[in-house]
Each structure stands twice: as C-alpha cells, then as structure tokens.
Amino acid sequence: MSVKAKKRKGPTTTKVKEERKVPEVKLIPVYIMGKRYEVPEGLTLMKAMEYAGYRFIRGCGCRGGTCGACGTVYRKPGDYKLQVALACQKTVEPDMYVTQIPFFPANRAQYEFAELTSAPEEVFKLYPELFRCVACNACTKACPQGIQVMDAISALKQGNIAEASRISFECIQCGLCTSRCFGELAQYHMFQLARRIYGARILPRAEHLAEMVKAINEGKYDDILNELKRVKKDELEKLYREREEEPVTAGEDWKPRDTTYL
C-alpha cells in the first residue's frame, strides 16, 4: 500500500533577517530506525530528523562536525554495505535506513599522566588488546573523518607513537571505529593517549614560552601592567593607536623598533 504524503512547507531556516517565502520543496522518504518519514531533500540527517519531529537529547552536539556526538550508520536499498556518517554532516538520500550510535561502551584506561614516559610499552601496558587487531581495516572504513585508523593502530603496534599521533590528529572520538572492531579495540582512546605522550614527551618543548613564564614569575611585567591599569581612556587610546604593527608577511625573525615594554 502506498501512503499518500501531504505536501509540507520547507524547513524553517535560522536566518530571519527579512521574511522571505519558503519555496515548496521536494520530499524524499527516509527510514529513521526503520520507520518511514518524508523529509525535504538537501537537509542533513540531523535536520531531517528534527524536521520529522525528533527532539535530540543525545546524538546531537556541535552540529559542526567536530564533537563526535552524532555518529550514524546507514544503508541504502539494494546495497548490503553498511555506511557511516555524522548526522550533522551527511545529506539525506532517498530510502536510506538510518540509526544513530550516540554512545558506545568502550574500554578506556585510567592512568597518571605525569608518570608516563615516551616508551611505546606505556601504550602496550595500558591497552594490551592493541595486539588483538587482525588488520581487517573495518575501523578505517567506519571513520567519518576519513582517518586511516588501521594505519595508526599499526604504527602503535610498531611503537611509533609519533606516526599514530599524526595520522589520528583529526579524530573526533565518535567511537564508530570501535563499534565495528573485530578485535574490540577502543582505537580513539588509544590515540588520545598516544597524542598526549607525543605532545608532552616527544615533541621538543617551546623554550621561548618557558623563558616568558620565567620572566613573568620574576615580576618583570608587574609594574608595567599596574601602570597600564591606571591609564585613562584617552591616553590608552593613544598608546593603542601608536603601537607598532608586526607585518602579516613578516618572518619569525621580525623585531619591533621600540623595545621598552618587552
């Protein structure tokens, strides 16, 4: 039996500046958790679900593709293949079957970061299941960020924390890789550990930052700032106008003429 759908107006947009006519839009069918709804084409999965009447508590976060709250799996008709997306990023397609995975119970190790060294064994110790990876690559296929997840896991297995950090840098920790993992690894927690070790124990430290902190702690700028706080608005505006501008194209070696307040 075919169900006759009534024409609905297009979705309300958030920009209101001037009231404008919302054109009639084409509706397409989508199956949300197996149930059929008709939604306007061109919407993201997230907006389509809201259009259908869902009000998110879970499964919705930044709505900008960076927080990992809205991991979603879907399948298209006639295709055996399970696909993944972020609901806030993926545009609806006709007849998709969609469900969100807003939470996945993944193993996360507890550790004292201050006690960790840069040795690869730190990762092995905290996540021995790392070696359960059978290199099936399901994780990579499941990554909505397009990260080469399995390559990063391989790097970790080889003790290459730096490489794993670089490959996984854009990880939004949505957990979809983990949901598909044959070896039951929590890849995104492992990468988090690797990146912290890389940042704090492997990459060289910023010496100039340490020097500035030292100068501040020695009170070098206390008088300057106390004086500035008392400056009247007119005088402050003058100081502001006259401050020397570092050119956009200047290199790291640029130095200002006036060094009084450095």
Binding site: I197, Y198, A200, L203, R205, A206, A210
Partner: peptide, 28 residues
C-alpha cells in the same frame, strides 16, 4: 591584566598536558 599576565603560564600548562600545538621542528 590578570589575563595577559597568566596567559603564557596557562599555555605552558596545556603543553605539559600534551596538547599538540603547531610547532617548528625546534619546538618553537
């Protein structure tokens, strides 16, 4: 004043926690 004075120390605190700032090869 409190903000600008404590900003560098705050940045170093993040560096210590392992935040991956974009750096030159020498750590700058």
């Amino acid at each position: 004043a409190a903000f600008v004075k404590q900003a560098p120390d705050a940045l170093q605190w993040l560096e210590n926690l392992g935040v991956l700032f974009s750096k030159f090869p020498d750590g700058r």
